[in-house]
């Protein structure tokens, strides 16, 4: 079975949404290209101005990167959000829409969530002001920790090349809150 592989240009166009649909569809429906992850990360790495190695993309703008012996969340603008096992949202700027007026400003009826029941939280990067994420949850609900990847297992067992230093795979968000905001 021949190895499936696409050129870096194709992967770049795929990331930027420039491929025609027929080609995107055939990539989606075909067998997974073996070197997709590495090419994908290479393309992303070329798009950012900083040098730290990207371990895994998190959102359109956020990446988990290797900084010294730490693995931190970093925005494409260079803003850092701390250890990847702490919910990065704690270190973002947050705008909450909780009244009906604030909700309707963006979402017309009937697309708007019920302002009696829940709020809309928008997360912005303190470095560049880019909107990084939006979540809609009931009032008082803790910040959602969307994605805590098991990086060591992924690198060791899927990519077959373990990361240099192991980190315990655990959610450190509560520890972070206890240490920094317990007062």
């Amino acid at each position: 079975m021949s190895k499936i592989s696409y050129s870096k240009e194709v992967i770049r166009d795929l990331i930027e949404g420039k491929l025609p649909w027929s080609q995107t569809k055939s990539i989606i429906s075909g067998y997974k290209d073996e070197d997709r992850f590495d090419k994908y990360v290479e393309v992303l790495q070329e798009k950012v101005a900083w040098q730290e190695k990207i371990l895994l993309p998190l959102t359109h703008e956020l990446y988990i990167v290797q900084k010294g012996s730490d693995r931190i969340v970093k925005c494409s603008c260079g803003q850092e959000f701390g250890d990847y096992r702490v919910n990065w949202k704690l270190n973002a700027l947050i705008h909450v829409r909780e009244s009906e007026e604030e909700v309707k400003e963006l979402y017309p009826y009937p697309s708007a969530p019920d302002a009696e029941f829940c709020e809309i939280r928008e997360f912005y990067c303190p470095g560049c002001g880019t909107q990084l994420w939006v979540e809609t949850v009931p009032f008082g609900y803790p910040l959602v920790f969307d994605f805590l990847p098991d990086l060591d297992t992924f690198y060791a067992e899927w990519l077959k090349r373990p990361l240099p230093s192991q980190k315990e795979f655990t959610d450190l968000t509560c520890d972070f809150i206890a240490q920094n905001w317990a007062e």
């Binding site: 079975m1 190895k3 499936i4 067998y31 997974k32 073996e34």
Partner: peptide
Amino acid sequence: LSIDPESK
């Protein structure tokens, strides 16, 4: 005809 690279 093709061979699935993962499952053969």
